[in-house]
Design a protein around this nucleic acid. Structure first.
Length: 130
DNA sequence: GTTTTGACTAGCT
DNA sequence: AAGCTAGCCAAAA
């Protein structure tokens, strides 16, 4: 199904976000060729399986490295924001919390926004050979 | 089945 | 500058 391919693309793209860096839902959407559907990236993450036997699951996909365009951790279930903030802190990403309780990261220091996925660059290089 | 919600965002007020 | 809208479409209701 098309949606499954979309999910897989989302997970694959997120796996290329480097340790200690963060990117946005919108950026992932653009990287996989669906610039108009950043919301789908969020949906895919919401449905990320916990089952360790599956190819894509909570430990194989660095879900914590995805934040919203404002640089903050998107609100969802209670405690979930805190969990993500902790996960990021674990890998050296500073997460600050404002008076409103909103967690955010500094893109200048931690942002990761390539034009192409590293894997795609590799393919491009491959084609150059002759 | 149909309708509403929502890990979103760029563009307008 | 803070808030609203349209567009998006899978999930949940």
């Amino acid at each position: 199904m098309e949606k499954d391919r979309f999910y897989a693309s989302v997970y694959e793209a997120i796996q290329e976000v480097p340790y200690g860096k963060v990117t946005t839902y919108g950026h992932i959407a653009r990287l996989i060729g669906r610039p108009e559907y950043p919301r789908g990236v969020g949906t895919a993450l919401k449905n990320l399986p916990s089952d360790a036997n599956l190819r894509f699951n909570e430990s194989s996909v660095p879900w914590q490295r995805v934040v919203n365009a404002k640089g903050s951790i998107s609100p969802r279930g209670p405690g979930s924001q805190r969990r993500q903030a902790d996960a990021l802190g674990q890998e050296g990403v500073e997460v600050s919390q404002d008076a409103m309780g909103e967690y955010s990261v500094n893109f200048g220091e931690y942002g990761w926004f390539p034009e192409l996925l590293p894997s795609e660059e590799a393919e491009m290089a491959q084609e150059q050979e002759s």
